Amino acid sequence: MTDLPTAGDSGWSDPDTLGAIPPVVAVTYCASCGRSANKGNHVLCRERLRVEPPVHCTTCRRELAIVRSGSQWSATCKKHGETSGTLEDA
Rank of each mutant, 00 (worst) to 15 (best):
E63D: 11
R50Q: 15
C77E: 02
N38W: 07
A26P: 08
S36A: 10
K79W: 13
L4N: 08
L18K: 10
L49C: 06
A65D: 15
D89G: 07
H42W: 06
T86C: 04
G85C: 03
R48F: 09
T86Y: 02
C60M: 07
E88R: 01
D3Q: 12
V43M: 08
P54F: 00
T59H: 11
T6E: 02
A7N: 05
C30N: 03
T59P: 09
M1G: 15
H80P: 05
W12V: 12
L64D: 01
A7F: 00
A26F: 13
C33H: 04
I66C: 09
A26R: 13
E82A: 12
E82K: 15
P53L: 06
A20Y: 10
T58V: 13
E88C: 01
T2F: 11
A20R: 11
R68E: 07
D9G: 00
H42P: 09
R68Q: 11
E88D: 09
G85I: 03
H42S: 08
A37H: 04
I66T: 14
S71I: 10
A26H: 14
P5R: 10
T86F: 05
S74D: 04
R35Q: 15
G19P: 01
V51F: 00
A65E: 14
A20M: 14
A90L: 06
R46E: 14
G11R: 13
K79V: 15
L87Y: 02
N38R: 10
K78L: 14
L44A: 12
S32R: 10
E47P: 03
C60Y: 07
R46Y: 10
G40H: 03
N38Q: 12
S69R: 12
L18D: 07
L44F: 13
G34Y: 10
T6P: 00
R35W: 10
V27F: 05
G85F: 02
D16Q: 10
V51I: 06
R61F: 07
P15C: 01
V24Q: 05
P22G: 03
G85D: 00
E82L: 07
T6L: 01
V25P: 02
P54D: 04
T28L: 07
T59I: 14
T76K: 00
L87S: 04
D9E: 01
G81P: 09
E63A: 10
A90I: 03
V55F: 09
D16T: 11
S84F: 07
K78M: 11
P22T: 03
S10Q: 14
S84N: 13
N41K: 05
A65G: 06
L4G: 04
S71K: 00
G11L: 08
